[in-house]
Simulated assay, not measured.
Amino acid sequence: MLSCAIDASAPIAVVSLSGALSMSSSVDARSVLHKALAAHPTAVLVDVDGLTVDEDIALTVLSTFGRVAAEWPGCPVVISGSSRTVRRDLERMGINRVVPLYDDRAEAEAALGDLRTPRRFRSMIAATPAATATARDVVRRACTDAGLPALADDAELIVTELVGNVIRHVGGTMELMVSARERFLHLAVRDGSPVKPKRVLPDPETGEGGRGLLLVDAVASGWGTSEISDGKVVWATLRIHRHG
């Protein structure tokens, strides 16, 4: 049986995996890892001390997670573990080529110690007609406070579409997250539905509908959807061009 625990009390989220990892239990590991990521930590440290590997292919859940975290929210992921058997399995499966592997948690934390804590802004917003205006205000203030006023217009356009999708298709309450990291401004909207948004073309006769995600696709450096245990996060990034 696999045991998964999250310690998100510090900027670096620590996910501890212990017990038996198999293809079936890797689903639980994936859910916990994405739950940790949804909180916008500075980094994620996966502690595999106490882990045993029943099926080595299940370890690919860690490399897949590392790639997802690199896309959104630009979050580095590292693995710590002293078990020679598990380390051998990780290296044989090539996981260490995607996610750095360290002998223990202290070494992994030291490697992450020089990371700059991102500027983060969060707001809970009810999915009412006023939500898009509220979200635009939050994003513009975040861009100003982070010293990125040049990105405000594009960020407002993107968040209008992301929030609009929640209003039209989900309802309830959403969480808007804005994070300014080294290279990208990350925009994300978390809602309670697991259904992923679909990019569709406007109606050829009326020209109506389907423009939202096409606009996001045109303006953003990248965008996508990350599943979490209680819904999903739809995210988009804007590249930061620093001068001087």
Rank of each mutant, 00 (worst) to 15 (best):
S3N: 14
C4I: 08
C4Q: 09
C4H: 04
A5R: 11
I6M: 05
I6S: 05
I6V: 14
P11Q: 14
V14P: 01
V15P: 02
L17P: 05
S18A: 12
G19E: 03
V27S: 10
S31E: 15
V32C: 09
V32Y: 00
L33M: 08
H34L: 02
A38N: 06
A38S: 15
A43L: 13
A43D: 14
A43P: 08
A43Q: 11
L45H: 13
V46Y: 10
D47A: 13
D54I: 04
D56C: 04
I57Y: 14
L59Y: 02
L59C: 09
V61S: 07
L62H: 13
S63I: 07
T64I: 10
T64Y: 13
F65Q: 09
A69D: 07
A70M: 04
E71Q: 15
W72R: 06
P73L: 09
C75G: 11
P76K: 13
V77I: 12
R87Y: 13
R87C: 11
L90S: 13
R92H: 11
N96C: 06
R97G: 13
V98S: 14
L101F: 10
D104L: 06
R105D: 15
A106P: 01
A106C: 10
E109V: 14
A111N: 09
D114P: 02
R116E: 15
R120V: 15
M124Q: 14
I125K: 01
I125S: 02
P129F: 04
A130F: 04
T132V: 15
A135T: 08
T144Q: 10
T144Y: 01
T144M: 07
D145T: 14
A146L: 09
A146C: 11
L151R: 02
D153W: 06
D154Y: 00
E156T: 08
L157F: 00
I158H: 06
V159K: 04
T160C: 10
E161P: 03
R168E: 15
V170E: 06
V170A: 11
G171Y: 08
G171R: 12
G172R: 03
M177W: 00
V178R: 03
E182C: 04
H186L: 04
A188P: 02
R190M: 05
R190C: 02
D191T: 05
D191Y: 02
G192Q: 09
S193N: 02
V195T: 07
V200Y: 00
D203I: 05
P204T: 00
P204A: 09
E205Y: 03
E205L: 05
T206Y: 11
G207N: 06
E208H: 03
G209N: 08
G210H: 01
D217T: 12
D217G: 01
V219M: 08
V219A: 02
S221D: 13
S221H: 13
G224Q: 00
I228S: 07
S229F: 11
D230V: 02
V233G: 02
W235P: 03
T237L: 02
